[in-house]
């Protein structure tokens, strides 16, 4: 290894990339226990450094979780994946501090998301229930301040607490979109998606059947990745213009929507304003194509240059 070359260390629990120069030390950490193999990382990465590792489904159950793997030669430590990861499995470090270079240089936005707690509105009887109910175990009771606190860094914004607390918790999810379950299309007896769903939106109902509570869904799409009925896709080029140059980028489109038991569509993401080609490109790959483009709130998009750019590309595509 020459100085400045990236070193990858992989254990069952995490993948760590280290790039050490004397005056700069970059590190990316993928927490494999949080990773659900959802495809958002691979779609976000501008260098295609992340690959999806499929899960293993046996007899309708997930026996090995889907996850991700990283090519150390391609990663450039931009940190875009860390921003977009829906389960906060990825952390970018610069010189020992958590820092996302693309955000520091305003080439990438911060997603607008939050989980707030109003103690006054809370029925404290439910305290332990709400804490236990959180699928990611990020709510705890602060003895000193006598209130419930949320580990914001690891909260996945599933809104389980919101429902469980009867509204004392207020969650803002970054992604808007839809999720639909068509039970009749499922493989008999399969509940693999419930095994991967990080939010319990997909769950086994009291009657023993697979059920969807779409309010909790964070639109990560991990369920589609483990579903034995695979989406087939075709690639097409999206042409878009930026800074006076017309680019094309390969994009995937599902061709067998009608056969799929579970379909997640991402339409729009809330984020701080940003002027960046990298963001436009990430968005173009992440937001589901047709539905996403049609549903995007045009008025709001007009106010935000970046989305406008996304739309420019999209309009080209829509015309074809």
């Amino acid at each position: 290894m020459k100085r400045g070359e990236t070193v990858k260390t992989k254990t069952d629990a995490e993948i760590v990339l280290d790039r050490k120069m004397v005056t700069l030390h970059n590190r990316m950490v993928w927490d494999l226990e949080r990773c659900i193999g959802c495809q958002i990382g691979p779609l976000t990465c501008p260098k295609d450094a992340i690959t999806h590792v499929p899960g293993v489904v046996e007899n309708g159950h997930l026996v090995k979780r889907a996850s991700a793997d990283i090519d150390p030669e391609k990663c450039i430590f931009c940190g875009m994946c860390a921003v977009m990861c829906p389960t906060n499995a990825i952390t970018a470090w610069v010189d020992g501090k958590v820092e996302v270079p693309v955000q520091k240089f305003e080439a990438f936005p911060t997603l607008v998301e939050s989980t707030k707690f109003a103690g006054a509105l809370f029925d404290w009887e439910r305290r332990d229930f709400v804490i236990d109910n959180c699928p990611t175990n990020v709510i705890s009771f602060d003895e000193e301040k006598e209130t419930l606190v949320v580990d914001q860094q690891h909260c996945i914004r599933c809104r389980q607490c919101e429902v469980a607390s009867d509204g004392a918790f207020q969650v803002v999810q970054p992604w808007e979109g839809t999720v639909e379950l068509f039970r009749e299309k499922c493989v008999e007896g399969c509940t693999a998606c419930a095994d991967i769903c990080p939010t319990r939106a997909l769950h086994i109902a009291e009657n023993g059947e697979l059920a969807l509570a779409d309010y909790y869904c964070i639109k990560c799409g991990a369920c589609m990745q483990v579903c034995p009925i695979k989406a087939t896709t075709e690639t097409y080029d999206i042409t878009f213009e930026s800074h006076g140059v017309t680019y094309t980028r390969a994009h995937e489109r599902i061709t067998n929507r009608a056969e799929l038991p579970i379909v997640v569509d991402r339409w729009r993401v809330k984020h701080t304003p940003v002027e960046s080609g990298a963001w436009v490109q990430a968005l173009m790959r992440l937001a589901d194509d047709k539905a996403g483009m049609v549903e995007i709130d045009r008025k709001r998009a007009l106010r935000r240059k970046d989305l406008l750019k996304a739309l420019k590309g999209a309009s080209l595509f829509l015309e074809e």
């Binding site: 020459k2 100085r3 400045g4 070359e5 790039r19 120069m21 004397v22 005056t23 700069l24 970059n26 450039i76 430590f77 931009c78 270079p101 693309v102 520091k104 240089f105 305003e106 080439a107 990438f108």
Partner: peptide
């Protein structure tokens, strides 16, 4: 926003 090792600096 992107930093990579500088060959001229031998990656230091």
């Amino acid at each position: 926003p992107i930093s990579v090792p500088n060959e001229f600096e031998e990656g230091l």
